[in-house]
Nucleic acid binder design. Structure first.
Lengths: 225, 225
DNA sequence: CGGGATATTGACTCTTATCAATGCCCGTGG
DNA sequence: CCACGGGCATTGATAAGAGTCAATATCCCG
């Protein structure tokens, strides 16, 4: 259960550097970033910890999750290179973030409570745009968790991953079945069975457990509800 | 099924007025607002419609929801007086908003895509703060929908409503069982059964179906997981 | 090539959904 | 003032979907 936590937290090269390594579209260009590396399953920040930074993924994949006291976990999002995460309204993290695979991020100092115009207006505008996009993703995911069945959830997940990987209909999943299950609100066994079902229906093929080939995208879209 | 839609959309007094009717904490003080009234179940905006405004609740209750093609619905949030809703990253609404009870809102012109500094930096900062708070609520709700059982969901819902009503442990629910069910990802029958169970456990009392009295808050908190 | 983590598959259980009947409350009109 | 009617809520019986527990199977990685 806890084998997932605290493996290798390799915090590397805390060399402040001005931001010009543009990976995605948005860039808080007025902020100073610190590059950091994390090994597989390493914790980037934990729920309850004091915040003070926003993060941008340079390479790898990050999962943001919340835990119940008894260990049940819900992953709210996977973040791919170019995406930002870690926004908080107050001084504390209300979710935790971990590297799914070896991952590099840049941390930008950010005090959400900062009063006056200590930050450039453009940075704030960019962050607002990102936060609103995050809100939209969350609403979509609420619909998935609250109202879709297991097959619909997996179909939607595979389409989301495909789209974010470039819509080539052929991609590798960075995360294990357990993470997919915790993202989709299912058990890993059910996820596995739904993979089998999608295969039987001829909607997908699996080269290996992680290597996905979408055979019939239209069918997947129809069944993702 | 559709009896819920399009009852009375009373759009009243579209008199632009400078914002000084402070209802909540945040106020986009540089924006001009238009007051509007909506009857029970009236649509404030629909999914797919062009956006261009953010809204603030003056009185009443608003539900924001998304629908699947077959009619399954997920309510992502209920908004009470003082709260803002309707943020969009692009020109379209990705969810719909309706009045749960007769409701007054103020609509503020807002073009999220507005490039340069057409809006005051403070307004943007306030909206960012609100969006991040919305993100946090969404994460909590994802955990509820993905990982909590029916009883835990209802307990958490009642505690949320109590807190937002002033934590007097005695309040009226503005919404019917059907809306609670669609917020909690359950059926209305299950919601009703869980109310009965909470009563049997001595955690709550119901003066009527909508009038809730929290008898044992500690027990509710323990069981909301 | 071997071994541990990851994934699949099977048998069975349990929670919640579904379908259906009844009850309750409140506003309206006789 | 009381009876009626309609929306809303409760309760019951049964079914279905996903969870749980358990036994392999497979895939990397060293």
């Amino acid at each position: 259960m806890l084998a997932q936590r605290a493996v290798t937290q390799i915090s590397e090269s805390p060399l402040p550097f001005a931001v010009n390594a543009k990976v995605g579209a948005m860039e808080p260009s007025a902020l100073i970033g610190v590059a950091m590396s994390f090994g597989r399953n390493a914790e980037i920040y934990a729920e309850g910890e004091t915040s003070g930074y926003v993060y941008k993924v340079l390479s790898g994949v990050v999962r943001v999750s919340k835990l119940l006291p008894d260990g049940r976990r819900q992953i709210s999002a996977f973040h791919l290179p170019g995406e930002m995460f870690g926004f908080e309204a107050d001084a504390f993290h209300h979710a935790s973030a971990e590297a799914v695979v070896p991952t590099k991020v840049v941390a930008f100092r950010w005090d959400g409570t900062l009063g006056a115009s200590r930050q450039s207006a453009n940075v704030v505008r960019e962050l607002l745009s990102l936060a609103v996009i995050g809100l939209r993703h969350a609403q979509d995911h609420l619909l998935l968790l609250g109202r879709k069945n297991a097959l619909e959830r997996l179909a939607a997940f595979l389409l989301e991953m495909d789209r974010r990987a470039g819509s080539e209909h052929f991609f590798d999943l960075a995360m294990p079945r357990h993470d997919i299950a915790d993202y989709l609100g299912l058990t890993l066994e059910t996820v596995s069975r739904m993979f089998a079902e999608l295969k039987e229906m001829g909607a997908i093929e699996l080269k290996s457990a992680r290597r996905v080939h979408l055979i019939n995208v239209a069918k997947l879209e129809a069944m993702s509800a």
